[in-house]
């Protein structure tokens, strides 16, 4: 991964069939569990979102922006650019949703966050007894973390049955484009067809 520019996950709308395997794998990768759906402990909240517009369907997720608006607007400093991309620190998130409004691609959601097999909790007044509080799962900022703690990399990329998702390393792409452009100037056509998402 380039330390200068963040990687991000890009989907090919031409390849996507809308099966939601990426969303399921993503949700599963962020809770504890084994190989089966029934083994998952906790609610499944995907961090990329299959989006339909007429005939088009494709998952949309975080671009890990270099000047990330979500990080810029967070009043609590809970979102930071790190070597592993733009990440939310749930300890500091208060669920104000400013990031959700600021994100240009709608990558931010508010969801139950699972830490160490338990949901992050919030204190609310007990509806049965206004003198006491109860704890319930809080909805906090939830976004793609590139599965940076996962051995095999992003779960969505691994799960896609059509290879429609790729983990883009921007510097590699840029250098390849330079080479392709240089060859094109020499009359050799080696352009990557972006719609098919093929990496060459």
């Amino acid at each position: 991964m380039s330390s200068r520019l963040n990687s991000f996950i890009l989907a090919s709308a031409a390849k996507c069939i809308g099966c939601r395997a990426c969303e399921l794998a993503c949700g599963a990768a962020h809770v504890q569990g084994g190989v089966s759906v029934g083994s998952l402990q906790g609610s499944i909240a995907p961090r990329l979102y299959l989006t339909r517009v007429e005939e088009i369907c494709v998952p949309v997720g975080c671009r890990h922006c270099e000047d990330a608006p979500c990080a810029a607007v967070c009043p609590n400093g809970a979102i930071q650019r790190t070597d592993s991309g733009v990440l939310v620190d749930e300890e500091y998130c208060v669920g104000c949703k400013t990031c959700l409004a600021a994100c240009p691609v709608g990558a931010m959601e508010m969801a139950q966050i699972w830490k160490d097999g338990r949901p992050a909790l919030r204190k609310v007044v007990d509806p049965q007894n206004s003198d006491t509080f109860i704890l319930e799962p809080a909805l906090l900022a939830s976004k793609c973390d590139l599965c940076h703690e996962r051995e095999n990399g992003p779960a969505c990329v691994e799960a896609c049955p059509k290879d429609a998702l790729i983990l883009v390393d921007p510097m590699k792409v840029k250098k390849r484009r330079n080479i392709e452009a240089a060859l094109a100037l020499a009359g050799v056509d080696t352009r990557t067809d972006f719609r098919s998402g093929e990496e060459r």
Binding site: A21, L24, A25, A28, V35, V37, G38, A159, C160, P161
Partner: peptide, 13 residues
């Protein structure tokens, strides 16, 4: 049977 998650090697399981 248990429904295997996407990405799990089904034949192996």
């Amino acid at each position: 049977q248990p429904k295997l998650l996407p990405g799990v090697d089904r034949a192996d399981a």
